[in-house]
Design a protein around this nucleic acid. Structure first.
Length: 283
DNA sequence: ACACGACCCTGTTCGC
DNA sequence: TGCGAACAGGGTCGTG
C-alpha cells in the first residue's frame, strides 16, 4: 500500500479531520513499533492542535501547536483509519478496538484516527519542529520527485558510474524520495528500461527521460487515489485504499499492455524483491 | 563506496 | 482440512 502516492492519498484523507483541529485525547497502546515510541507520547499529543499536515517522501508530518512535529511512517502494513465522521445522511461510529491498533487519536470535531499496523514496520516519533529535516529519518532523503530539485541533470549525474541495477538505484531513498517496489516496476516499464540494467550504463538521454516518466506515473497514481478516495464510503472509514491498473506489477505470465508489443510479463528477484517487466519492450 | 543478504513482524496465499 | 514454505507495497544493519 504505502509508496509516495498512497501516503499522499492518506494525508489528503486526514486533512479534513486533523488540520486545524485539537487532539482531545491520545492513546498509545505499546512502547514500540519499528523503533521505541517517544517518551510520554500520549501526554505530549493530548491537548495539542494540528497546525499543518505535510508529507516528505513516505512520511506524514503533523506540525503541532506545542512546537513539536509528529512523524508517521506506515511501513508495509500501516493504516490510518478514520471513524466517527458524518458522511452525507449517514454517520458511522467508532468500531471496536482491533488487533494491532497501536495509537488512537480522538480529534476535536468527533473524528477518531487509529494507527493500525500488523507487521510493525511502521514508525512514529516526535521532534522539535524548528529542527526541520534534521531528524535522522528525514536527513538523508533525496529530492521529492514531484519537486523542482528533481531534474534530469540531477538524475543523470547521480546514476553515472553506478553498477547497481537501475531498479535498486531508484529504490534508493537518498537518490529520490518515495519510490517503492510497485512504482519502480511501473516506471521502468513505461520508460522501456530493463530493471536489471546497470544504472550507469543507461545513456544520459535515457536516464534523463526517466524524470518525466517518474513524475507522470506518480501524478497519475495520486490522482487515481484521490478520485477513489472521494468515492469511498465504508463504515470503518479506512483511507489509502484504491485500485490500480498496474501494467506489469504482479502480472507475471500475462500479456504486456504496451500497445503493439505482444510480449509476456516476466518476474525476476533483485535484492530479495520481485521485479516485473516485459523482456520484449524493456531493454 | 558499493552490493548483497539477513533481519525486523504478522498475515495471507500456495503447494503438497 | 492441515501444515509448512514462500511471499508481501517498508527500511536498517553488518559483511565482504
Amino acid at each position: 500500500m504505502p509508496e509516495l502516492p498512497e501516503v499522499e492519498t492518506v494525508r489528503r484523507g486526514l486533512l479534513p479531520v486533523m488540520e486545524g483541529k485539537g487532539i482531545v485525547q491520545a492513546q498509545v497502546n505499546r512502547r514500540d513499533l519499528r523503533f521505541p515510541l517517544p517518551e510520554r507520547m500520549a501526554a505530549r499529543l493530548t491537548g495539542a492542535r494540528v497546525l499543518g499536515l505535510r508529507r516528505r517522501s513516505k512520511y506524514i508530518l503533523a506540525d503541532l501547536s506545542t512546537g513539536e512535529t509528529l512523524l508517521v511512517h506506515l511501513g508495509m502494513s500501516g493504516r490510518m483509519l478514520v471513524s466517527g465522521v458524518a458522511q452525507g445522511a449517514f454517520y458511522h461510529h467508532h468500531p471496536a478496538p482491533a488487533k494491532h491498533d497501536h495509537v488512537v487519536l480522538d480529534m476535536e470535531g468527533g473524528a477518531r484516527v487509529t494507527f493500525n499496523d500488523a507487521r510493525r514496520f511502521g514508525a512514529m516519533d516526535l521532534f522539535d519542529t524548528a529542527s526541520g529535516d534534521a531528524h535522522r529519518l528525514l536527513r538523508d532523503i533525496g529530492p521529492e520527485p514531484l519537486g523542482n530539485m528533481f531534474s534530469e541533470d540531477y538524475l543523470v549525474s547521480r546514476l553515472a558510474g553506478r553498477k547497481t541495477p537501475i531498479k535498486a538505484a531508484l529504490l534508493d531513498q537518498t537518490l529520490v524520495a518515495g519510490l517503492g517496489n510497485i512504482y519502480v516496476s511501473e516506471i521502468l516499464h513505461r520508460a522501456g528500461v530493463d530493471p536489471r540494467r546497470a544504472a550507469g550504463r543507461l545513456s544520459a538521454r535515457r536516464a534523463g527521460s526517466l524524470v518525466p516518466v517518474i513524475r507522470a506515473v506518480l501524478a497519475e497514481a495520486i490522482e487515481a487515489g484521490g478520485s477513489s478516495l472521494r468515492d469511498y464510503r465504508q463504515a470503518d472509514g479506512e483511507l489509502g485504499y484504491f485500485q490500480h491498473a498496474f501494467r506489469v506489477y504482479d502480472r507475471e505470465g500475462a500479456a504486456c499492455l504496451k500497445p503493439g508489443c505482444g510480449g509476456t510479463v516476466a518476474r525476476v528477484v533483485q535484492s530479495g524483491r520481485s521485479s516485473f517487466y516485459c523482456p520484449r519492450c524493456q531493454r
